[in-house]
Amino acid sequence: MGSKKKSAVMGYTKWGYIFLIPFAAVFIVFQLIPLASTIYNSLFENYMSGLKHIGPNFIGLANYTKLFTSGDFMKYFKNTMIMWILGFVPQILVSLLLGAWFTDPSLRLKGQRVFKTVIYLPNLIMASAFAMLFFTLFADTGPVNSILVNMHVFAKPFKFMSNIWSVRGLVAFMNFLMWFGNTTILLMAGMMGIDTNLFEAAQVDGATATQIFFKITLPLLRPILIYVMVTSLIGGLQMFDVPQILTDGSGDPVRSSMTLIMYLNKHLYSKNFGLAGALSVILLIITGILSMIIFKATAQPENN
């Protein structure tokens, strides 16, 4: 009896492996092998010099040192971070504020669903089309300049696309618009998870809305805040569509809005495989470290 039952169990546990096959096969072929060959490529000199193909020759870590000593990597890393911070700071502040308002029972805001629907909308828009739209709207002869000149804000059209900080500002602004609705919804879910007795007790003790926010809501939101921040940073490192389309891949003016992935994309198109590989591996390592932070941050409360 016992052995028969055991074999029946064994009989269908093997289906666990069978159902895992599609995921495992696709993961190995389309992610693991490409990952391994990317790392492998990073150790070789392999690029096009004019029409001549150089390499592949094994050169160890020379691609990595070249990446850091040429200064381009640090420059584009700095650009990426500047544009991420410019977009993220207003994003997290606005999201915290909206989240606090939406979940405040004493405020009883009406039309919450409509507002949430509207602020989440830009997140689903094709980033490339959104960037193209901003490019035409903020062109020298575009509607934004036309409105600003009519309102006498500027005497003549402002060249948004020729100024370092207006291009970076536009990229950051688009990222802000696309992501603050998503962040608001995430933070709201976290805020609604907080025990309402805490708020009531604080109110009975005479705490103001501001005090409640800083002394109760924020500390309890810490894990989800870290989650939002680190996932946004990982997303920020992957910033590509918006600056790529807005500046037509050039990162102009003077490559001040060129991001790391735009740089990678450039190497991929020019078949500069050695440097592209090294750049990918560095990005992978940074992402890995950031992911560890998420795991630590979100695992902590369960242990306590």
Partner: peptide
């Protein structure tokens, strides 16, 4: 969390 871009090559 592995971004698709890092395996693109």
């Amino acid at each position: 969390m592995i971004p698709t871009q890092v395996t693109a090559l």
